[in-house]
Structure formats: structure tokens, C-alpha cells
Amino acid sequence: MQPCDQNWTHVTEFATLGFAEVHEMRLLFFTLPLTMYLFALVENLAIILVVGLDHQLRRPMYVFLTHLSCLEIWYTSVTVPKMLAGFTGGHGGKNISYAGCLSQLFIFTFLGATECFLLAAMAYDRYVAICMPLRYGALVSWGSCFHLSAACWLVGFLTPILPIYLMSRLTFCGPNVIDHFFCDVSPLLASSCSDVTLKETTDFLVSLAVLLTSSTVIAVSYGNIVWMLLHIRLAAERRKVLSTCAAHLTVVSLFYGTLFFMYVWTKVAPSINFNKMVSVFYSIVPPMLNPLIYTLRNKEVKGALGRAFSFRSWKGQ
């Protein structure tokens, strides 16, 4: 919180500073994120198209995967284009309206929370498939899959409502420069001249609720899977079980690992430039790697990709 000055005017728009300090390396910092962003878009669109077109992939596991890919496309598109636009400006910064800033923060938080719940739903799917295979069709039917996915999106949408409302009640009276490439919580609170104690407490409790709920479901699901693995004697069966959940477990580790650095480590060792670099990694790298993780070890998806994009399929043979 900054001390209020009667001579300051209320802020109606913000200027994101971006990476103004890397002016001489602007081309590299523009090209690398752009390439990764385009890769993320193409990969996730390919997953959505393949699962939608291939009848052999019409199963709950792959339905959850299409939801995740759709979310990743939106997630990167909320922040990355704005960051790239910052590199084209004269001083590395671009203006964003007050309403646009809050909207960007709302969508970013909404999608982040939804991903937590989607990963939890996918962990439950893996638990039922491995530990209760005979009841899988009943417990994870098309109806329950639809309801689980809809619940993830709904709860994710409700998550930022109170935090964003409290943010809208704060007074921003200058300077209007945000030392970041998008409207994140920390730089916005730093530029406010209101008491942000209630806002910070609410953010902490909401984030804690989302993380505890989703991580508990994931931990319990994989705890049961590990318990089952301990009772399997055949090495081949153990490898089969591990291969079934390896991709999801890798994605969960990547997501929560970057989340830890984003919201925990950066609080312990605060550095504006380091925070921005972690944000770039968090915004681009997981959405780019997740489709690769799910396809490299998945014969069904690789086979579907081959059928969908083979030359013969285009000729209708």
C-alpha cells in the first residue's frame, strides 16, 4: 500500500512495464515466447481435433484431456499476446484500461482454479480406472464425466468473484505503472493506496481452499493407486499401472511445481525480474509441454494423430 497523496488523481488505466530492461535483447525475448505460444496453440488444437474426430478416443479420460487443452489455449491467450505486444512498444509498455485489467486478472484466476479442479477430476478418473476397473463404466460414465467437467468450470468461475470484487473496491491513485507484463495481484496491490489487508487475507484463504481441495483429491487418488501397486507382484502389471497414470502425474508435478515457485518461493525471495520470468514460464511452458506429455507415452493418442493427419486420411482412403 502506498501513502495517499491529495495531489494524485484516480487511475483509470494502467501501463504494464513488461520487460523494458531488456531493450537490447527485445527480438530474442519476443521470438522465443511467440514460438512457444504458437507451439502451445497448435498442439492443444491438435488434441481437441483428434479426440473430437476419432471415435476410438471417445472415453472420459480423453474428454477431460480436451477440456484441459481448451483451458490451456485460453490460459496462454489471456497473458502472452499482451506480453508480446509490450515488446513492440517504444518503451516496452502498453496501456490497459482499469476494467480490462480486472477482467484479465479475473479470467487468469478463473482458468488457474479450473485447471486445479480438472487435474483433480483426472486423478479421480485414473484412480477408478486402476483400482476399480469393473466399476469404471458406472462411476465414470458419460453423465458423471459431463457433471465433473461442468463442476470444475463452474467452481473455477466462482473462485475469483470475491477477490476481484475486493480488488475493485481498492483505490488506485498513482503511479499507474505496473512492473509486470500482465495484471497480476502483487503489482496491483503494490500500486494501491488503500488498506489491502482484507484483500490479501481473502486471496490467501481462497487460494488455500482451491489448492487444498484439489491437492487432497489428487493425493488420496494416488495414495490408493500406490497402495494397490504395493500389492501387485507381477512387474509387468506394475509397469502397466504406472504407464496408465505416468502422463497425468507428470502434468500434475509440472503444474504444482511451477505454482509453488509462482506463489511461495517468490514470496520468500522476492525479486521483480525473477517473478516476471517465473510468470513467463508458468504462462507458456506447461501449456506447451502438456500435450507432448500426454502423447509421447500414449499409443492411442499417437495412433489417432497418425490417422487424423496422415496423407491417406486427407484423400479419404
Rank of each mutant, 00 (worst) to 15 (best):
V128Y: 06
L162E: 05
E115M: 07
L84K: 04
Y124K: 10
E115W: 02
Y127C: 07
F182A: 05
L102D: 10
L119T: 05
R126V: 07
L162V: 11
F172H: 06
V177H: 14
T76L: 02
L119W: 00
F182G: 01
A150L: 10
I96C: 03
G137K: 08
P133I: 07
V128A: 08
S77F: 08
G86T: 08
V80Q: 01
L158R: 09
L170C: 13
A129M: 15
M83W: 05
F181M: 09
L111M: 11
L119C: 11
W74V: 12
L111S: 04
Y75M: 09
C183M: 07
M83H: 00
S97N: 13
A85P: 00
F117H: 06
V80G: 02
T109R: 06
T79K: 07
C183W: 06
W74P: 02
A120D: 02
L154S: 14
W74K: 06
L84M: 05
M122T: 10
F108A: 12
G93L: 05
H180Q: 11
A113E: 02
E115Y: 04
H91L: 15
N176T: 09
T88A: 15
H180T: 11
A120P: 04
T76W: 01
F87A: 08
A121V: 05
M167T: 04
T159Y: 06
V128F: 06
F106A: 01
C183D: 02
R135G: 04
L105P: 00
M83A: 08
C145T: 15
A99S: 13
L158Y: 10
G156A: 09
T79M: 07
I107R: 02
A85R: 10
V185Y: 09
T159D: 10
F87R: 01
G89S: 15
I164L: 11
I107K: 07
N176E: 14
V78D: 03
S149E: 01
T159W: 03
G89M: 14
M83F: 07
G143A: 08
T159A: 06
T109C: 10
L102A: 12
Y127G: 02
A120L: 08
L166A: 02
F157L: 14
A99D: 07
A85F: 08
L119M: 07
L162N: 10
C173N: 09
D179V: 08
